[in-house]
Write a protein that binds this DNA or RNA. Structure first.
Ligand SMILES: [Mn+2]
Ligand SMILES: [Mn+2]
Ligand SMILES: [Zn+2]
Ligand SMILES: [Zn+2]
Lengths: 131, 131
DNA sequence: TTTCAATTTAGAATAAGTATAAATCTATTT
DNA sequence: AAATAGATTTATACTTATTCTAAATTGAAA
């Protein structure tokens, strides 16, 4: 079944994620909904995020922080997190297919996908650190 | 200060992690301690795991599940998780340096390290699936 | 309209982990 | 040996993120 039922609340949640520049958490989404004059139940926001994730309209990101983040970009890409300020950037450079092939060979697993979280220091934090 | 103070409880926690074959969670560690006749406070197990991690005697793994796992292998490697049975395998094939360099160039971040979680289906689950 | 399934709501429940303050252990000084 | 002081452990309370539950609401179809 690929029919998608976008209720008012699901559409509003989707809009927030789609218009975000920063991979918001569920709590971020909640706050932005309130800013836009909505007041949905907490559970509804979680349900909507899950629904949209299931329908592959958004992606859920586990970046090793306590809370999941959400991303309206569903094309294949990875993420990089600043160890200083926590900013999350996009990594579009594709993972070499050959690495995945080697991993499949090494482990005997049938490999489906890789989630990569790169850690480092962003340009701003680096220049602040300099002085 | 690199002095390491291994109390009874820290040593016992370390032993459990070192002798485990399966990247145990804190709860797993707790259970195995009880099996070995120990009965430490829950907080002590968490404190010990954190202490050992800080001293780099073990590593904490965030594999996108709800609970962290712990690994006595501290050499550079990655992990692969079976989507069916949840088994966690080691990935020793190193990520090409050149990929990390490209990511640094693309993002402007100073890249420190990459945490990779590969998802797929392990050999056993694949053969079970066949019939 | 009536009906029925899907959805939303408010709030309780759960899971993992952290914080706190008192008790205990351990090493050092007297 | 006794006293002191710092580190550690313990029991328990707390926090945070998320899921569950049961009742109320919505909205499409009959
Ligand atoms: Mn992204
Ligand atoms: Mn490992
Ligand atoms: Zn930064
Ligand atoms: Zn498996």
């Amino acid at each position: 079944m690929k029919t998608i039922n976008l209720t008012t609340q699901r559409q509003a949640v989707y809009d927030v994620v789609r218009e975000a520049e920063d991979h918001p958490t569920a709590a971020d989404v909640m706050n932005r909904l309130v800013e836009r004059g909505h007041s949905f139940a907490y559970g509804t926001v979680y349900n909507s995020l899950r629904y949209l994730t299931d329908k592959e309209m958004i992606r859920e990101l586990k970046l090793g922080e306590t809370a999941s983040r959400y991303d309206a970009r569903t094309d294949d890409h990875q993420h990089i997190v600043c160890e200083v300020c926590g900013k999350v950037g996009e990594v579009m450079t594709p993972m070499p297919e050959e690495w995945l092939a080697k991993v499949a060979e090494e482990t005997g697993y049938e490999v489906h996908e890789a989630h990569i979280v790169v850690e480092g220091v962003c340009a701003e934090c680096r220049s602040k650190r300099k002085r």
